[in-house]
Amino acid sequence: MGDAVSSTVMKSIKLFPLITVLAATSFAFVGVAPTAIAASDATRQEAVVATRSFPKTNAVKKNILAESTSTQVESGSDWGGVESLNVPQTKSQAEKDQEAADKKAQEEEQARAQAQAQSQAANRSESRTALNTGSGTASSTTSIPAPPATATGQALAQYALQFQGYPYVAGGNQPSGWDCSGFVQWVFSQFGVSLPHYSGAQMSVGSPVGSIADAAPGDIIVNSHHAAIYIGNGMVINALDPAQGTQVTSLAVFTSSYVIRRVL
């Protein structure tokens, strides 16, 4: 019995140093492990800081949420052809109705003008027929009024007034048909005065009159486009055109400047 106890004690004594060594090693490991882990975490944090750091900026942005109001567009910018987009235009029913009414009114006006022109042409044809057949106002040489014996400007103006309504014919200088300067030429010829036919040449006949205030009946009012006989009070008798024939009008018939020439 005593030998068994002694043997057990001896084994315990032999194991004690081994247990002591193992315990010391465990405590050393427990102390070192947190330190190693802490060192590893510190290294990892330094690595993260190094990879996620950004350069410092000195630019300060003010009111970055404010809406931009700039409308400047760089030259040569291509916006996909939006600036040349062809947007179809539409019209309201009122606009369409107005266009239709305007078109109808225009067509009616053209029809009236055409009818008037045809009527005037018929009247001129009748006048020429009367002249050629010996009937009517200016039917023949014998029916043309004789000029007065006194050759004055006033007498000439009164004589010219008797030819109102006579026909206009371009280039003509007879009662059967005359143009503006042909009418002036023919009337003066009845008083023994020979004048050139065309208005540009008539601008230099006789003597000049300074202004319309000084003009007298029988004076010639003329420019390079038109000629007329003054009858007083700002009025003239003249051959106008095929539609109007020979008529009394105001000086407004001259659309540009004119000269006044006194022959009688």
Rank of each mutant, 00 (worst) to 15 (best):
Gly81Asp: 01
Lys61Cys: 05
Ser189Asn: 10
Gly136Leu: 06
Lys62Ile: 13
Thr141Asp: 08
Ala101Phe: 03
Ala160Ser: 11
Asn63Glu: 09
Ile144Val: 07
Asn132Phe: 06
Glu99Gly: 12
Ser140Phe: 08
Gly172Met: 05
Gly182Cys: 02
Ser75Asn: 02
Glu95Thr: 13
Pro88Arg: 03
Phe163Asn: 01
Gln120Asp: 09
Glu67Asp: 15
Lys103Cys: 04
Tyr166Gly: 04
Gln110Ala: 15
Ser139Phe: 14
Gly80Thr: 02
Ser75Leu: 09
Ser181Tyr: 06
Lys91Tyr: 08
Gln120Trp: 02
Ala111Arg: 14
Gln190Leu: 08
Ser75Pro: 14
Gly80Gln: 01
Leu85Ala: 11
Gln118Pro: 02
Gly177Lys: 04
Asn173Glu: 00
Gln114Thr: 14
Ala47Asn: 01
Thr141His: 10
Asp78Arg: 07
Gly136Asp: 04
Asp102Tyr: 10
Thr90Tyr: 14
Trp186Asn: 01
Pro175His: 05
Ala50Thr: 08
Thr71Arg: 14
Leu65Ile: 10
Thr150Ser: 15
Asn58Met: 13
Val73Met: 08
Pro55Ile: 07
Trp178Leu: 12
Ala157Phe: 03
Val169Asp: 01
Ala157Thr: 05
Gln106Asn: 10
Gln110Thr: 11
Ala47Trp: 07
Thr150Cys: 06
Val49Ser: 13
Lys61His: 09
Glu126Ser: 09
Ser77Phe: 13
Val73Asp: 00
Pro148His: 02
Pro147Ile: 06
Ala117Gly: 01
Gln162Pro: 12
Ser127Lys: 15
Ala138Met: 10
Tyr168Asn: 04
Gly134His: 03
